[in-house]
């Protein structure tokens, strides 16, 4: 009786989220999966006929008559993955020491800092990216200051380069890396560090053998949360990146909005999703195997 009742309560509580995810997440996903195998309509939209050249254009079995194979799509995908990986790495390198520093602050300063970290969420992303545009442009603050102090004589060409895109993405993603990392570092039992040093481990050994593995869940969590939106990000490259900063997200956006080729955009989306999923599963498996070796 008690168990039946528990099940009923649980089912009632889970119904809203199940419905929500089903309608607004799973259904659109299935539609995209379906569209990616349909024929693009002449003036946008789709024709309900099977069409494998959406993927052919990307992977190379296009017939060069109806559709043309272009390696640029895979190159852009590879570039996006590279940018995202670089973003993850830079966010990690920035946040890891700061997380340690913040976790050792007195309570009220720590609260203030955590508030400051979330402060960017209070204003629009677009506005903040345009602020970077003003900072980075040839006559912007950065170049004016650098020329003013005599560090450079010619303005740096940062804007509309891949560097600007990565910089923008790191800026956007830092809070997402910081929070899971901070939580892991804050939960790290200080006694473990002392125990390690007490047993003769140097600071470096302690870091590698105790601190890093103990905070690994936070690192992985942050990396995943930063990596996924970074791969598909199109706003940052849109504002700060030039032609060389184009990412797979921009390509998808163009297909849906400008080119009005929904099936091709869907095919690109599916590939992005597949690659992200593969990377995630691969890294989780690797982390698990690493954990196994430690045992």
């Amino acid at each position: 009786m008690a168990i039946r009742r528990q099940t009923l309560v649980l089912a009632t509580l889970l119904t809203p989220v199940t419905l929500f995810l089903g309608v607004f997440f799973l259904l659109p996903l299935l539609i995209i999966a379906l569209f990616s195998f349909l024929t693009p309509g002449l003036y946008g939209g789709v024709e309900w006929a099977f069409y494998h050249w959406n993927y052919g254009r990307i992977f190379g079995w296009a017939d060069d008559i109806i559709e043309v194979y272009e390696p640029i799509y895979l190159q852009i995908l590879a570039r996006s993955l590279g940018f995202a990986a670089l973003t993850v790495l830079l966010c990690l390198l920035l946040c890891y020491p700061v997380a340690f520093w913040v976790s050792r602050l007195p309570n009220r300063w720590r609260m203030l800092f955590l508030f400051l970290i979330t402060l960017p969420f209070f204003s629009s992303l677009i506005v903040r990216l345009y602020a970077w545009l003003l900072i980075l442009k040839p006559s912007g603050i950065l170049n004016t200051v650098l020329i003013g102090v005599g560090a450079i004589s010619e303005p740096l060409e940062i804007l509309y380069t891949p560097a600007a895109v990565v910089l923008g993405m790191v800026y956007v993603m830092v809070p997402f890396m910081f929070l899971p990392l901070y939580s892991a570092v804050d939960n790290l039992d200080r006694a473990l560090i002392e125990a390690s040093m007490d047993l003769g481990a140097t600071r470096l050994q302690t870091f590698l053998k105790v601190v890093l593995p103990q905070t690994l869940p936070g690192i992985l969590g942050g990396a995943v949360i930063v990596f996924i939106p970074s791969v598909g990000n199109f706003i940052v490259p849109d504002v700060l990146g030039g032609a060389k900063g184009l990412m797979i997200g921009n390509l998808v956006e163009q297909q849906f909005l400008s080119a009005r080729n929904w099936p091709f955009g869907s095919a690109l989306s599916m590939i992005v999703m597949a690659v992200v999923l593969a990377v995630l599963l691969g890294s989780t498996a690797a982390a698990k195997r690493k954990g196994g070796q430690n045992a």
């Binding site: 473990l192 040093m197 007490d198 003769g200 053998k209 593995p213 103990q214 954990g291 045992a295």
Partner: peptide, 30 residues
Amino acid sequence: FRRPVNTVFQSYALFSHMSVARNVGYALEV
């Protein structure tokens, strides 16, 4: 880490990501 002195901590401070054997052998490992 250079003192020939070892401590048993109040909270034990065992390394949860390591096996018992690796915990015990830690001083020799480092």
